[in-house]
């Protein structure tokens, strides 16, 4: 099901018509071919207007776009031999985080990430990608296996945040997130974290301590969602657009702040407009960084990761 955000709505009738024509008519010549080329021109004109200069708020919405590829889409297109592993061995399997082992360009790696759903049923089953403590424990378990077997780790970040619930608190949401972050500093294998959609706070960071942190062009990564921030600081959840400007959560912002090592370009309009192009871009960038990291020994990887995060923060010092 194709889904349109408010600011994309102008495209909807035209693209529906295009689909219709392609489905039912001969489009190689004649009347319909003409109409089609006219419509396609129209689409690219509107695309330029609506995607040409995206605001932070629009990017925040794009980062959550229902038609964006999610973790398992990247896994199935960029990796081969994916074998999913389940469970934290303590309580249960949390479908909000999926992961296992697979091959990336022939290299055996651990791959894991938050998994949102495509449709209502999957979204509910996966709790919209909001993990409970068992999800982070599963992630730690997989990373621990990877470390022992000396396999690089690739994580995908796409979550509104860790789930705020009674059970989550009782089972130690804060402790599991803290432990996952701390644990990632111990890893002696290359770790690449990719923010593919929504990078929501501690729940994102829990799988985000990488030697490289990559970010898709229209993904966001923030300490709090714009709506959450607006509700606290403006006391009005509807001030999300203002909060999105203030928080500077976009990929170019984060690149500027040295939180992100490379911004992965998306097709014009966003990843949801052309999955294959998105996969191709990410595949190239991933491959480059993985090759670089594979030449560094374990101690060096650990030290590089520590130094990378050690430098983050802006302050001044009086002596």
């Amino acid at each position: 099901m194709r889904y349109y955000l408010d600011f994309e709505k102008r495209l909807e009738p035209i693209e529906r018509r295009i689909e219709e024509i392609k489905k039912f008519h001969n489009v190689t010549e004649g009347h319909y071919a003409k109409e089609l080329s006219g419509l396609e021109k129209k689409v690219s004109k509107i695309e330029k207007e609506i995607y040409g200069d995206l605001s932070n708020w629009q990017r925040s919405q794009l980062s959550r776009h229902l038609n964006r590829p999610h973790t398992l889409d990247y896994v199935s297109h960029l990796f081969t031999d994916f074998t999913e592993l389940h469970g934290d061995r303590r309580f249960k399997d949390d479908p909000a985080i999926a992961g296992g082992f697979a091959r990336f360009e022939g290299i055996s790696v651990a791959v894991l990430g938050h998994q949102k759903g495509k449709d209502v049923r999957e979204m509910a089953a996966r709790n919209f990608g909001m993990a409970n403590p068992e999800g982070y424990r599963k992630a730690v378990r997989l990373m621990d296996l990877a470390d022992r077997w000396q396999k690089p780790i690739i994580t995908f970040i796409d979550t509104p945040g860790a789930f705020p619930g009674i059970g989550a608190e009782e089972r130690g949401q804060a402790e599991t997130i803290a432990s996952a972050i701390c644990f990632m500093f111990s890893l002696s294998v290359p770790v690449i974290a990719v923010v593919i959609g929504e990078g929501g706070s501690g729940g994102a960071l829990a799988v985000g301590v990488g030697n490289r942190v990559l970010m898709l062009e229209n993904a966001t990564y923030s300490v709090i969602s714009p709506e959450g921030c607006a509700a606290i600081l403006w006391r009005d959840g509807a001030k999300g657009p203002l909060a999105a400007d203030a928080l500077k959560p976009t990929a170019p912002d984060l690149y500027e702040l040295n939180v992100v090592d490379e911004v992965v370009p998306e097709p014009f309009g966003g990843a949801h407009r052309n999955w294959q192009e998105t996969f191709d871009h990410l595949s190239q960038v991933l491959s480059k960084h993985l090759k670089e990291l594979l030449s560094i020994p374990g101690d060096g990887l650990r030290a590089q990761r520590y130094d990378k995060f050690r430098r983050m923060g802006i302050f001044q010092e009086q002596r």
């Binding site: 803290a178 972050i181 701390c182 644990f183 500093f185 111990s186 706070s201 501690g202 960071l205 985000g208 301590v209 990564y221 923030s222 300490v223 709090i224 921030c229 606290i232 600081l233 203030a246 928080l247 500077k248 959560p249 912002d253 984060l254 702040l257 939180v259 990761r305 520590y306 995060f309 050690r310 983050m312 923060g313 802006i314």
Partner: peptide
């Protein structure tokens, strides 16, 4: 976290956790 410092406030969690490790 201090929202007024955006993503870098989140990154303090990782920085400190690294030092704890």
């Amino acid at each position: 976290a201090r929202m007024q410092e955006g993503i870098l406030s989140l990154m303090q969690m990782s920085k400190v956790s690294g030092a704890i490790y």
